[in-house]
Simulated assay, not measured.
Amino acid sequence: MFLDEFHTVIEGRVVVSAAQASRFAKEIAGDFNPIHDPDAKRFVVPGDLLFALAMAKYGLGQRMSVSFSGMVGKDKALILPDLDQGVIEIIDDAGKVYTHVEHSGEVSHDPKLIEALIRSYVAFSGQNFPYILVPLLEKHQVMFNPRRPLVIYESMSFELERVTIAKPELALVDSTLDVNGKRGDAHFIFEIRDGAEVIGKGDKKLIVSGLQPYDAELMRQMVDDFERLKTTYQNTAPA
């Protein structure tokens, strides 16, 4: 499984190093958020990697949802339970829950399909900033604090008509932002397609905190920083 290079199993626990998490974020998701840099002070393992590991272990469900209740730091030992009753909680040895996954309906354990869907979803998810979120913030004339951006990946869910899929692809069909004071709930609505056929739909939710009036120049600087980080990594990463 292609995820083997992005985690290590030690005494039955799943451990993700800073380097593994950072490579997954950049090379699989196209996500250059500084919190995924190995030397970041507030380093966080990408939520999409945790969900991908769960899907690889338990299979692709016809209906799936994932929610995140804690941020995973580097080298945190995580327990993915062997028993699956349709509800999975990824915890540490102290019992703290970091990720809650539910699935129901038909289940596929086809490794090629699971890898294809993971790659497609994570690539879509990694486009959140700047390609989806920035136009949405501009539309509502609000933005996060550039000195301390607080954008939290809270949850994601999807439902499929079937789990026999030849070529899964994801596409954004709508995005919304509900603003309540300093907080905004962003929803990215997407379709799951098998070639040209729409076979499912889903919703990814982000929480954007510390909202302030939109400043085009400040946002442009952040987008430029993102593009610079992306270009630098692509030019220096090993082939």
Rank of each mutant, 00 (worst) to 15 (best):
Q20I: 10
V179G: 03
D31R: 04
L150N: 01
M156C: 12
D75I: 10
E191D: 13
Y121E: 04
H103M: 13
L150C: 06
S67L: 03
Q127K: 13
L170K: 01
G59W: 08
S125N: 13
G47F: 01
R23N: 11
Q221G: 15
E169L: 01
R220Y: 09
A123F: 09
E11I: 02
E191L: 12
A239L: 05
L133D: 05
A29G: 12
Q62A: 07
P168W: 10
L160F: 08
S157C: 08
I165A: 06
E169A: 07
G181A: 11
L211W: 03
L117I: 14
Q221S: 15
D31H: 06
D31A: 02
N235D: 14
D194Q: 12
F6D: 02
I152A: 02
V107C: 10
G30Y: 10
A186P: 04
D92Y: 10
I207Q: 08
N33A: 00
L3S: 14
E169W: 02
D225F: 09
E159H: 15
N145A: 11
E138W: 10
Y233F: 13
T236M: 11
A237T: 04
K96W: 10
L80A: 02
P213M: 06
M156D: 03
F24C: 03
L137E: 09
P38N: 10
Y233V: 03
Q141V: 00
D4I: 06
V101S: 07
Y214L: 03
I88W: 01
E161S: 09
N180D: 11
A77C: 11
V163L: 09
F6W: 07
L53I: 15
Q127Y: 00
Q234P: 00
A171P: 03
I90Y: 04
K57Y: 03
V173I: 11
S22D: 00
D31W: 14
Q234K: 14
V107P: 03
E115G: 09
G73I: 10
V44T: 15
F68P: 00
V198N: 11
S175E: 04
L60T: 07
P81V: 04
R220V: 08
A186C: 12
V72K: 01
P111K: 10
H100F: 09
S65G: 00
R63V: 11
L78Q: 06
T8A: 15
D178H: 05
A25W: 10
E27Y: 11
M1N: 09
N180Y: 05
A171F: 11
D93V: 15
L218S: 12
V179S: 01
I189E: 14
